[in-house]
Computed example of a mutant assay.
Amino acid sequence: MDKHSTSAEKGTYISIAAYIFLSALKLSFGYFGDSKGLWADGLNNTTDIIASMAVLIGLKISKRPPDDNHSYGHLRVETVASLVAAFIMVTVGLQVIFSAVKSFFNQDSTTVPNMLTAYVAIFSAIFMYGIYRYNLALSKKINSASIYAVAQDNRSDALVSIGASIGIIGTKVGIFWLDAIAALVVGIIICKTAWDIFRDASISLTDGFDEQLLQQIGQTILLTEGVKNMSEIKARMHGSEILLEATVHVNPLLTVIQSHDITVKIEENLLNEYNIQYVIVHIEPYIFPKKR
């Protein structure tokens, strides 16, 4: 648990540091280089700082041990943090879309940004893509929904910077509408990413679970030595942890100790294969088929 939280917080701190650096860079060059696109991209990064801070707070709260009101701990706060990140992302995405539509119908060809702003935008895209790859790999390694949300936000920011660079270059060659089209596409991508994060977090918070994974877990239980049958299995996500309950049927002639040993073996198999640390196994007697 501590290792998971420490790694997740490290990824969030890296994102926050990157956003602070890039927002200062983009706002400065966007203002002095007369680039509205780069300036807007810098403002976008300032909202990302808020989203990352929300995730960081969620991660810190999720580390709290169980108490009287939270017998299972506070891990689900991490999922709530990913929801907050999704809401902030969709807000930014809609702002980008509305701004793009407005720019398309109100094109201003009097201001041509400095070419240096395009280089800054390209550098920012490459830099943020590297952060995205790091956090994506980290989210898969520690199975963190909130860090996955942060990684998707990183990718969206890289796309926004690419859109800004395309718009700046288009303006330099006289294609003034290219900025608006690029921004529109980027805005749609950001909203789609936010929706994916919101959907996954909502499924987790409403105790939804991957049916295919549940079947694989059930097969592992059935293959455990001593298990004759399984009549029920259910699971839910609690932050990054899986909570599982199963009812298995064993030989009714076994002693309590022998039946208990089977449950221990099931728990060991699930921990080794799926890293499931919380398992409740209910034992029922197996009714052998009557011989004809």
Rank of each mutant, 00 (worst) to 15 (best):
I131N: 09
S103G: 02
T255H: 02
V256A: 04
Q212W: 10
L254M: 12
A182F: 04
E232K: 13
K60L: 13
R155T: 06
S231W: 06
K10V: 11
E267K: 10
N154C: 15
H260R: 02
I257M: 03
I188K: 05
S103Q: 03
S202M: 10
L213S: 13
I61Q: 11
G163T: 04
S15G: 12
L27N: 13
L136Q: 13
I242A: 08
T263D: 01
L270C: 05
A183F: 01
V101S: 04
N269K: 12
I257C: 00
K3R: 15
W39A: 12
A100H: 02
V281Q: 03
L116Q: 03
T79G: 03
L213Y: 12
H282S: 05
I276T: 09
G58A: 09
Y286A: 08
T263E: 01
T47C: 00
A54P: 00
G37A: 13
Y19E: 14
F176D: 00
L22C: 10
L159K: 06
S62L: 09
S5D: 14
A137H: 12
V150H: 04
F98P: 00
I203N: 11
I166K: 03
A180D: 01
Q258D: 10
F288C: 00
K102H: 09
S161F: 04
V55W: 02
M115A: 13
K140T: 08
S259V: 02
L83K: 07
L25I: 14
V112R: 05
L43F: 15
I168Q: 04
Y13R: 14
N114C: 03
K102A: 06
A180I: 01
S165F: 05
E78Q: 09
Y129E: 14
A121H: 06
G239Y: 05
N106P: 00
A17Q: 04
S62H: 09
T110V: 02
G42A: 12
P289N: 13
G163Y: 02
H70K: 02
I262E: 01
H282V: 03
Y134S: 05
L184H: 01
R199P: 00
R199Y: 15
L243C: 03
G226Q: 07
